[in-house]
Amino acid sequence: MNLKACFLEQKEGARDQQLQARMEMMVGYVLQAGVLISGLFLAAGLAWRFLATGHLGFDFTLRGMNLYEFLVHDVHAAFSGAARPRLLISLGILVLLITPYVRVLSSMVYFAVVERNCKYTLFTGFVFAVLTYSLFLR
């Protein structure tokens, strides 16, 4: 496929509809998995905290940090073995934040590799780049 044709408007055919339906399933499962895993981490963190201390409330604030620092912070805490319920809570929030991010990334790859739609690869690529910038830079 040459580059110019790739940017032209694509006529919808049976193949496109099938591709689109598959993409919809993919996006749906990415979102569902993210929300469920995040919810499990959060609930487990709260339950663990309750069993260990008899309290449910957590009282910790993050200093301003980006997603990358948040991740590093969590991994450090995991290896030091301290404050485990807290770690689960952080992981739950981390997974939640990554969920739409992964959705955008997987759509971008799908548009590029499977649908071969240059326009939408660029569009999702732009969204991905902006999110990456906002999540990882300060």
Binding site: T61, N66, I89, I93
Partner: peptide, 9 residues
């Protein structure tokens, strides 16, 4: 998050 307004607890 970067501004430190998100309190996980």
């Amino acid at each position: 998050l970067a501004a430190g307004y998100i309190d996980p607890g």
